[in-house]
Design a protein around this nucleic acid. Structure first.
Length: 371
DNA sequence: TATCCGTGGCA
DNA sequence: TTGCCAAGGAT
């Protein structure tokens, strides 16, 4: 790892902030330093790219202009606004944090990273980002960009996937961060990481801090950051039951914990839950099991028919879902007293929080109907 | 410490 | 298609 002199640190800050002042991106959450605005943007930006976030941020602010509005919001409206953005616990945690601020802090934001970390959904990165941007505190905000940028600048060998590596980066950045403009410094590092110092195809030759990039100068840029590989997603087979009734389609709300918590999909049956074997269960077997799943009635006239074509697939971070579509038409509305769900008309779909995988199911179903 | 938790872009 | 990566946090 490199060691920088005081003079070099001062020169780096100058080069970085001069570039940021000239080239910084004009983003909706950079119009002011309202902690609420900074916070919402930082949560949305977790593991999510800027272009994806912008429209969600605009809609969210229109719906919940203040932290008090968010604290009082119905969960259904919150999830509806978040649907499609992913990592849905972020939305739930954000509302918890809004309520913590209203109740525990009397509506006034805590201003130190340490206090901010006590709020739901705020970890070391987000605490540093809010403390530096909204409250001008010299606190590092170490995200994937900061790991990548500083590992190259200093040739830091620590594996960034290991939690204990954070302290090594924290100590380095704490020395280099601008005491006068810590928020701009952190944001400049992030802008740098998403422009000149990208993971793939970096353009370091034209970078405003090229001469500080030791890994580049040594021709070893792509060796950084050091990280261990992730495991590939595990395939999981489901039947997706598209069930039409005179009043609309049968939709189920997922359990409050786990994958896609509280979101709405058609009933999904995991193959491994249906039989003790991994081979596909018989269709007749499936009808009985499916019936028990969504109604109190022991048996209803349900005839499941395969919907042609290849299965619908959707890959998450650690699971790959393979969905075989089945279709049934019910002549009457079944008793749904023991079912966490409802019959929904397509015109009301926009009021439900549906994950991307469900939108894929609808797209495929629509295509097959048009044939 | 290792695993869980979404989605989109890109080579 | 597949693999990797992106403004992470909770358990």
């Amino acid at each position: 790892m490199q060691q920088w002199s005081r003079e070099k640190i001062v020169a780096f800050r100058q080069a970085l902030l001069d570039w940021y002042d000239r080239e910084k991106r004009d983003l909706p959450w950079r119009k002011d330093k309202e902690p609420y605005h900074i916070w919402v943007s930082e949560i949305m930006l977790q593991q999510t790219q800027v272009n994806t976030v912008i429209p969600y941020y605009q809609r969210f602010m229109a719906a919940f202009p203040t932290v008090a509005d968010l604290a009082a919001a119905p969960e259904a409206k919150l999830l509806q606004l978040w649907a499609g953005l992913g990592y849905y616990s972020r939305a739930r945690n954000m509302q918890k944090a809004a309520q913590q601020i209203m109740i525990d802090y009397q509506g006034k934001w805590p201003q130190t990273a340490k206090e901010l970390t006590k709020l739901a959904g705020i970890g070391p990165y987000t605490a540093g980002a809010i403390a530096s941007i909204a409250f001008n505190q010299p606190e590092p905000a170490i995200d994937g960009n900061a790991f990548r940028v500083f590992s190259r600048l200093f040739e830091i060998e620590a594996d960034i996937t290991k939690p204990q590596s954070r302290k090594i980066f924290y100590d380095v950045i704490k020395e280099v961060i601008s005491p006068e403009r810590p928020g701009d410094f952190n944001q400049a590092i992030m802008d740098l990481g998403s422009s000149y110092m990208t993971a793939k195809n970096p353009d370091t030759a034209n970078s405003p801090v090229r001469d500080f990039n030791q890994a580049y100068l040594d021709g070893k840029e792509m060796a950084y950051p050091v990280r261990t590989k992730k495991k590939p997603p595990v395939p999981i087979d489901y039947f997706a039951l598209v069930i039409q009734t005179p009043a609309g389609y049968l939709m189920e709300q997922r359990p409050a914990k786990g994958m896609l918590a509280d979101l709405w999909t058609v009933p999904l049956l995991k193959w491994t839950d249906l039989a003790d074997q991994e081979t596909p269960p018989l269709l007749s077997q499936l009808v009985t099991l499916a019936t028990k799943r969504f109604t109190a009635e022991t048996q209803i006239p349900l005839t499941l028919a395969p919907l042609g074509g290849k299965p619908v697939t959707h890959t998450f971070t650690h699971q790959k879902w393979v969905l075989t579509l089945l279709y049934a038409e019910l002549p009457s509305i079944p008793d749904l007293s023991y079912f966490r769900g409802n019959i929904v008309k397509p015109t009301d779909f926009t009021h439900l929080a549906q994950p991307k995988v469900q939108l894929k199911i609808w797209r495929r179903y629509q295509q097959l109907r048009e044939q």
